[in-house]
Structures are given as structure tokens and as C-alpha cells.
Simulated assay, not measured.
Amino acid sequence: MTAGITIDLGDPVPPYEQIRRQLSSLIAVGALPPGSRLPTVRSLAADLGIAAGTVARAYRELEQSGLIEARRRNGTIVVGPAEVPHGNAGADAAVMAAVDGLIATARHAGFRDETLVDLLRGRLAQTSKLDS
């Protein structure tokens, strides 16, 4: 099971970071809710055709950020963040609807997914500077 994870070896983003980002996103949108078991490091590495150390690094970073937990006998489990941010389900649904709308609009306009992500990161960086 790769959980829809793909690696683009031509992407300048390191493979471990590609895995981390994709798993983090799947957890954030609820596609991997708390309690979900992730594939073993070796299994995911074999499925993706990459070194086990690459997957292990992604898992370590996800664990450090509190999204997953490695348990000796139970494997690696998703532990967060499926709860609704700030306890406001309406706001969470509105944000998800806005993201879905953004994706649909960008695809209709012919944007590649990677371009959309880059644009979003750029705008987030700009607004972070304004908020400071």
C-alpha cells in the first residue's frame, strides 16, 4: 500500500520530503485518520523503489511533528491531527471547500499541481511577512 504516494525523482525536492509532504497532507485532510496504520518502512520503500533510509527519514520527521507514532508491535500509526482546528467544524468545512474550489479553478486554467502548490507557498510566505 503506497496510500497514493508517488515519488518524482526529477523533482528538486528530496524524496523523503516528497513522502513527508504527501503523508502530512493525507493526514490533514482526513484520508489517513488517527489509528490508521502506515506501511512498514521497508514495504513502502520497496513499493516506491527507493532506499528504506529515505522512508525512515520521512517517518522520523512526521513523528517529530506529532503526526505519527512508531510502536514496536503495532507498527507506525497516525496519531494526529484529525481533530477540527480551533473546534470549529464549520470553518474547517469552509476551508476544505475553498481548497477544493482553488484546485478545480487551477486545473481548469491548465495549471500543473506542482505550480499550484508553489503559488500557494509563495502567497503564504508573503502573507506571513505581512502578519509579522
Score class of each variant (00 low, 15 high):
38 L>Y: 05
15 P>T: 02
82 A>S: 15
110 G>F: 02
55 V>A: 09
59 Y>H: 08
12 P>V: 12
57 R>V: 09
36 S>A: 15
70 A>V: 12
15 P>A: 13
88 N>S: 11
16 Y>G: 00
46 A>I: 01
99 V>T: 02
65 S>F: 01
88 N>C: 10
32 L>G: 00
46 A>S: 13
129 K>W: 13
6 T>I: 08
83 E>Y: 00
132 S>A: 15
6 T>A: 09
115 T>A: 15
110 G>I: 05
114 E>I: 10
57 R>H: 15
70 A>P: 08
1 M>E: 11
56 A>Y: 10
116 L>N: 02
16 Y>K: 12
131 D>M: 12
69 E>L: 15
59 Y>L: 10
39 P>S: 13
18 Q>N: 05
96 M>S: 15
70 A>Q: 14
16 Y>P: 08
11 D>C: 14
69 E>W: 04
24 S>H: 13
69 E>H: 08
22 Q>C: 04
119 L>R: 11
53 G>N: 14
81 P>W: 02
43 S>K: 12
61 E>I: 07
38 L>H: 00
64 Q>E: 15
40 T>Q: 11
48 L>N: 08
71 R>I: 09
10 G>T: 12
113 D>C: 01
8 D>G: 04
92 D>H: 07
13 V>K: 09
65 S>G: 07
69 E>R: 13
103 I>N: 03
51 A>Q: 11
71 R>H: 08
40 T>W: 02
89 A>R: 13
77 I>F: 01
84 V>Y: 00
9 L>H: 13
12 P>L: 07
35 G>S: 03
20 R>P: 01
37 R>H: 05
44 L>S: 06
3 A>M: 14
65 S>R: 14
85 P>E: 02
92 D>C: 02
108 H>F: 13
54 T>G: 06
38 L>E: 06
87 G>V: 01
94 A>L: 12
94 A>W: 03
76 T>Y: 06
61 E>M: 12
15 P>M: 06
78 V>C: 02
17 E>N: 09
75 G>P: 04
52 A>L: 02
90 G>L: 05
38 L>S: 02
18 Q>D: 09
109 A>P: 02
20 R>C: 04
53 G>L: 08
117 V>S: 07
29 V>S: 13
117 V>A: 15
52 A>P: 10
31 A>Y: 03
102 L>Q: 09
85 P>S: 01
32 L>S: 00
75 G>E: 05
82 A>K: 02
79 V>C: 01
1 M>L: 10
5 I>M: 03
66 G>T: 03
106 A>M: 05
28 A>S: 12
93 A>Y: 01
88 N>K: 07
12 P>F: 04
